[in-house]
Design a protein around this nucleic acid. Sequence first.
DNA 1: GTATTATCTAAGTCT
DNA 2: TAGATAATAC
Length: 748
Amino acid sequence: MDYLSELNPAQRQAVEATEGPVMVIAGAGSGKTRVLTYRIAHLINKGVDAFNILALTFTNKAANEMKERIAQIVGPSEARNIWMGTFHSIFARILRQEAERIGFPRDFTIYDTQDSKNLIKTIIKEYGLDDKIYKPGLVLSRISAAKNNLISVEDYKKSVNLIAEDRQSAKPKLVDIYDTYQRRLMKSSAMDFDDLLFKTNILLAKNPDILVKYQHQFKYILVDEYQDTNFSQYLIVKQLAAAYQNICVVGDDAQSIYAFRGANIQNILNFKKDYPDAKIFKLEQNYRSTKNIVNAANSIIELNKEQIKKEVWTDNEEGNKIEIYKASSDNEEGKIIANIILEQKLSKQLHNYDFAVLYRTNSQSRAIEETLRKKNIPYKIYGGTSFYQRKEIKDLLAYYRLAINPNDEESLKRVINYPARGIGKTTLDKISVAAVNSGKSMWEIIANIRNAGLGLNNGTLNKVSAFADMIKSFNVQVATTEAYELGNQIASTSGILKELYADKTPEGISRYENVQELLNGLKEFSETQKKIDPEKTPVLPDFMQDVALLTDQDNETDEDRDKVTLMTIHASKGLEFPYVFIAGMEENLFPSQMALHSRADLEEERRLFYVAVTRAKKQCYLSYATQRFKWGQQIYCEPSRFIDELNPLYIEHKYPVNRAKQTLGKESETRKSTPITPPKNLKKVSEIKSNPQESAFNLPISVGSLVEHQKFGVGEVLELENGKASINFKNAGKKQLLLKYAKLKLIS
DNA sequence: GTATTATCTAAGTCT
DNA sequence: TAGATAATAC
């Protein structure tokens, strides 16, 4: 395949300059992924062993797609050997391999943000501190920032500045929390997200033999989205690339949107300083969007001060202007979007997957979701509460985690009394105090509860040791029993399946289905693994290895194909859609209220807007609402400054005709009447019912009618007055019900 | 020890 | 509004 002929001169140069440091500044839609894939394929075609290539991407999904495309050029067996994935997943893999060098077991657990927050909460309580001052989220983000800048506990203690800052903000104990937090992670054989990078740095810095080993393994290093790397990531790459200097970074300073996570835009701005003889290529031709979109996007980003100069242009058609819609509320905004989707689909013969709705915050998804559901437009949501964050999934995964690593304290606390087995707070407190006092993990106490001398009564002792025995029995099988078999066994032995099966409410049924879905996933995993390597039994730890690092995007199924995409702008990075809506273009929302205080923050918001607009290929729509619900309260909003910042040449204000029924008191019509949230991004949403539980509003009910209510049973209607009914239920007595809300069935 | 009810508070973006 | 936690009753 003659891939080189598919490249423009700048792209081709970037692909062919395989030796030495290279930086590719890739404007939005300029074929960055193409350059990366062809560059890797080119390396392999030139005789480089795939095993010697390290490619760090921003999402696992991006990595997998790239691998597939490379496989088409060089063949699947070669492509499989490339080390390609996110920073977190690649270095988690390496840390497992070298675990003993940093004093961790190979099967360490990866704590997600919730686990970390819970642990911090526990520590704050143990210190007897006020969690109104020491807010767990804030404490965690401070610790996280420290780690991303490679500031260890010892460094922190020595830093006059940091200590002074903490004193200033009335949190002098912060460093002690940091200290304890790290110790507790260690005791739980766990690492948080930041540790994966932090400990990699330590591993490489403290073990010259290991550093040399990986330097020679990764002769060629590629980093995608370099503008979003933080100091910790930057240093890993720098250490690894030091021997051969065959490092290629690709990025766009204009799309740097992760400063809040420690990303340092200076990494890309300073590349030339780190590697003075670096070759720099600029990709400036946009192949994705219309002239109008590209020009509009350029007119935004021009306002930013800090940037590498470049001129993004396109040969594509002129296209339509960016349309701007004003809505009276967040629900109205959803309706406008839904109507445009329906109209466009009809007039242009489009698919649902041609559309994406982007927003600044996850909380905005609900209003849009509601209207799409009402109009029977299938959609999928990324982010928010993802599959792996659902309670029932986390519960089962906690058992899996515990089976693999019983020291995992957060999992232990999560399931020791779920399903309820009579081990309550008092007992748990005793165990946890004993653990802290003896320097042991909670599991070590529990595993030996009869000798712990906690003064528990016999009944409790039996319950605790029965639990411990169960976990032990899982634990001995972990290394040998086939993954799906053990996973299934755990699901039933633990009682989780039974517990969920017993719940026949719609939510309960969906929870049960979700767990089945997880088990299916596990089964599928086992089977694929067996196909790849029939010699080896796939075990649970293989499956669990980077479950904590998976996101919704990695979990896509075929059924998700023809749906409108809903996601945050952050999540949309690297993606493209023909028709893009950007909702919530309002001051204090976008730009976020918290970004108004500093120029740097505001510039990041502006880059975020740039990213959003440049996702669109054919048409981009902006919308804002003059009122919006926040915390159940209506607040007034003003249009975003970003609308004014767009060059008026490329935009057009639209005023949609108000649809038919503009009833007053539409409160109930728009807000209420939404039944249970359906399984959001889950498989089963395919058939969306607009309004399955009809309200009783339209039933021909009169005084004397016999009706049946879901909860109260059968009753007789005594009185009827403007939508309100007073009903005498046989079992539940007399009740006042609003027909609008009550779900009644007419019997006679 | 457990289930139910009342009260509080959160929503800024992500691996 | 909704989920998390504290208070209360059983």
